[in-house]
Design a protein around this nucleic acid. Structure first.
Lengths: 167, 167
DNA sequence: TTTAGGCTGTTATGTTGTAACATGGATGGG
DNA sequence: CCCATCCATGTTACAACATAACAGCCTAAA
C-alpha cells in the first residue's frame, strides 16, 4: 500500500488524487453516483490517513454545508465501504480510506494507539488460508473477516514510555 | 477448545462448571474477588455459547435482582475480559466466554450470522506469524490483536436463508 | 477502631447508529 | 412533453452501546 510519512504535506499529495480518481472511474464504470457528499467524505478519509468516526466526519460536512444529520454521514460511509473505497475499523467504530481500492483483498489493519494512524496491509494469502482452515475444521463458511491489531507505530514508539509486547 | 453442539443440553454440561471452576481458582490464586455478579455474568456467557450484549446481560441481572444500571454489567464484563475469562467481540459490541481461560492465547472468532453463535478457535499462527510479519515490516509493535470472521455455521448453513438468532 | 481499598448503587450524560418518512432531481418510456 | 421510477438527500425521532462521577458499604489489615 501507499504510506505517507508526513501528514502536513499529505493533503496535497498524489495519495488523495489517486484515491479520488480511482473512485471516480470505478463509479463511472459501474454507473454509480459519486456525489459531492461521497467525494468529500472520501477526501477527508484520504487526507487524514487515520480512522475517523462518523460524527467526526459529520462535523466536517456541517462546516462545509454538506449535511447536518447522522444519516448523511452514515449513508456516504456505507456507500464507500460497500464499494470498497473505505473500511470500517470495528475496534474503533470508525472508518478509514482503503489502501487498495478496486482490488479485492483481505486487509489487515495496524492501528497506532497514540497517533491513531491506521496502516492497511494485505496479509491476504496467509490470513485467508489459516482462517479458511480454522473455519473449515469448525464447519464455518466465512463471508467476511476482520483482522485488526492495535499497537504503537514507529514514530510513536520512540516518543515515550512503553516498549510494549506482541499479542 | 470445547465445542457444544446442542444448546438445549448445554446448560447442564461440564462446560459451565469448568469455566466457573477455572475462574474461581484463578481468582483465589490471584486474590481477586469472584463476586456474585461476576460469577453470574460468566455463567450466562458460558451457558449461551454465543455473544451477549451488555444490555442483554443487564436484563438478566435485573431479573435476578443483581443490578439495574449499565455500569453493573459493564464492570463485571470488564473484570472478566481483563482477567481472560471472556472476550469482547468488536464486530458485535458483545461479549463471549473465553474458551481457554488461564492460557494466554491469540483467539480467532468465528461468528455465525444467523444464530449468533461464536466459536473461539486458536489460530495462533494468524496472530503471531502473519500479524507479526505485517507489523514488523510496518514498524509496528503490536499490543493486542483481533481476528473476527463472520459467516455461517454448519447447523445454519443447511437452513438456507431465514431463521435468525437464538435467545 | 480506624482506615484504605475494592465492589456495588445511582444519576446523568455521552457516543454511535438507524428506522421511517418526506423532498427533490435526473432519466427514460410513453 | 409528462409522468413514473429510481436514487440521493433532508429531517425527525429514537435505539443501542458506553462511561464519568460520586455515594455508600463491606471487609481486611494496621
Amino acid at each position: 500500500m501507499t504510506v505517507q510519512a508526513d501528514p502536513d504535506t499529505h493533503e496535497q499529495t498524489a495519495c488523495v488524487a489517486q484515491g479520488i480518481a480511482a473512485a471516480e472511474s470505478y463509479c463511472l464504470d459501474h454507473k454509480l453516483q459519486f456525489t459531492a457528499v461521497r467525494r468529500r467524505v472520501l477526501e477527508h478519509l484520504l487526507v487524514e490517513h487515520r480512522a475517523l468516526g462518523a460524527y467526526e466526519i459529520l462535523d466536517r460536512l456541517r462546516e462545509e454545508g454538506l449535511g447536518k444529520q447522522p444519516p448523511i454521514a452514515y449513508r456516504a460511509l456505507d456507500f464507500l465501504v460497500e464499494h470498497g473505497f473505505a473500511h470500517r475499523i470495528e475496534r474503533l467504530n470508525a472508518f478509514v480510506a482503503c489502501g487498495s481500492p478496486g482490488r479485492s483483498h483481505s486487509p489487515v489493519f495496524l492501528i497506532c494507539r497514540k497517533c491513531k494512524r491506521v496502516v492497511e496491509t494485505t496479509a491476504a494469502v496467509v490470513a485467508d488460508k489459516v482462517l479458511g482452515e480454522a473455519a473449515k475444521s469448525n464447519g464455518f463458511a466465512i463471508h467476511n473477516a476482520v483482522v485488526e491489531a492495535e499497537g504503537t507505530c514507529t514514530t510513536c514508539v520512540s516518543d515515550t514510555d512503553l516498549p510494549e509486547k506482541a499479542t
